[in-house]
Design a protein around this nucleic acid. Structure first.
Lengths: 72, 72
DNA sequence: CAGTAAAGTGCATTATAAAGCATTATTTTA
DNA sequence: TAAAATAATGCTTTATAATGCACTTTACTG
């Protein structure tokens, strides 16, 4: 997933769960400014920030082997 | 995946591919010091750093819904 | 064991993520 | 449409990630 997709995933998940940025910031311990910056596609969050947000949203950061198959 | 697992995954993948830290640093554009720090379980890499390393190793950073099933 | 390669660590500097605050813009809803 | 809620942005400060360099430690390999 590229940066943009990660942002989109977090943002959509937050919206599905009907959580505001403010609430997510509170629950995750991530600064509101940091969350806003991230969701608006700017910046370069630390792994820790990404994990805190993911956690609250019931998600997790993972690494998977890229699919480099020819017929994709 | 927790931080430790992410580290382990990157490190093991690098070793499987028989790439040295030095070579991975070169290929990914990540500083050798940064890579060393990460692999020895210290620090808190930025998403960008994690992605650069993953890319070269044929992996990608992703977000997935956590499995919170009762019988796990 | 000696020599070499690879990995880990201390220190210092630079770049930038994290954060808060105030303000503005946008969206929602009454 | 007015009011309220939510989201975005500029500015600034503080914390820390990224980096290089020199050195130590740990693995290999002859």
């Amino acid at each position: 997933m590229h940066f943009t997709e990660l942002v989109k995933t977090i943002k959509e998940r937050r919206e599905v769960l009907q959580v505001t940025q403010e609430r997510l910031a509170e629950l995750s311990g991530v600064g509101l400014r940091t969350l806003k910056q991230f969701e608006s596609g700017k910046g370069n969050p630390t792994l820790s920030t990404l994990q805190k947000l993911s956690d609250v949203l019931g998600m997790e950061v993972c690494l998977k082997i890229k699919n480099v198959g020819p017929s994709q």
